[in-house]
Amino acid sequence: MFNPTWAMTIEMVIAGVSVIGLFAALGLVLVLMERRVAAWMQIRLGPNRVGPKGMLQSLADTVKLLVKEGMTPDGSDKFLFNLAPYIAMMVAMLLMAPIAFAKDFRLWDMNIGVLYITAISSIMVISILMAGWASNNKYSLMGAMRSGAQIVSYELSAGLSILTIVVLTGSLNITDIINAQADGWWIFKGHIPVLISFVIFIIAVTAETNRAPFDLAEAESELTAGFHTEYSGMKFALFFLAEYINVFIVCAIGATLFLGGWMPFHIGNWEAFNHVMDYIPSSIWFFGKTFFLIFVIMWFRWTFPRLRIDQLLNLEWKYLLPISMFNLLLVTAIAILKWHF
């Protein structure tokens, strides 16, 4: 009974079920969190009708989306139209594989974790392009084009800022990267250059996940809803969920690279202090850091005005990319001369 094939099958089923469960939970929590943060930043109350303090609002919304009719417009490419949201979801699922949620708790400890994440996240744009084209709608097409230009260009500076940490650690393996931060997180150990690359990383991933102020792919005020204009019901919900899952994933990666992942807050050789910090479970450290970064990205969304497409590309090609290239040089110098702590 317990030959390797069965063991692998059972392993896959367990992994799949837990990832889907995590997705559902994250979707509910993040949507509620977004609405609450938005409300408080705009001096409002936010959802407060469904359940205690409005806690069940996103559950009610989910039920609504589940029972809604999923329409496929006439004249659309039906196959691709229906495929696109699932691709978005699958990419999000694949990205979960190398993330370390707690000490020794991950789906796949691969040698090239960071490269894998950059590679898989480049498929994300395909689902948006597919949705935009298959809808046979001008707004969708324009949203898809914009988001393509946006994601392809911001991938560069996101990749370069990830590279700074890879240079400092000397490994693409996520476990190695986290272990290298046992005596302090990179953001503290790496001086100002790592801080700069952290800021660039946050900006670039905000753009890559198509969130305001870089929400040109959706652009409610000009393109109705951009690439998912024609989507409704569950297919829309999948896009919506994928957006939030992607936010979670990029924040988890940011937390892993710059804030030490599940590694508790350690300072150099202060054994006593480090020991006290170890009492807090590693999963709490990981989720705490990740949700802090998610909060920062939400803070951006509800503070900054949207960018125009030319401003967006200017920001990337004239500011972020040159700065992050120069910064990478600095970090390489630091790594070679061993100036970091």
Binding site: G75, S76, D77, I112, L115, Y116, T118, A119, I120, S122, I123, V125, I126, L129, W133, A134, N136, L141, A144, M145, G148, V152, E155
Partner: peptide, 26 residues
């Protein structure tokens, strides 16, 4: 990973863009 970065993230996206710019949907 390199296969995905180069072919999927690079070349296919480039092909799709050139389709977007030259062809009519449907």
């Amino acid at each position: 990973a390199v296969q995905i970065v180069v072919y999927v993230g690079g070349i296919v996206v480039l092909i799709i863009f050139s389709i977007f710019l030259t062809q009519q949907a449907g």
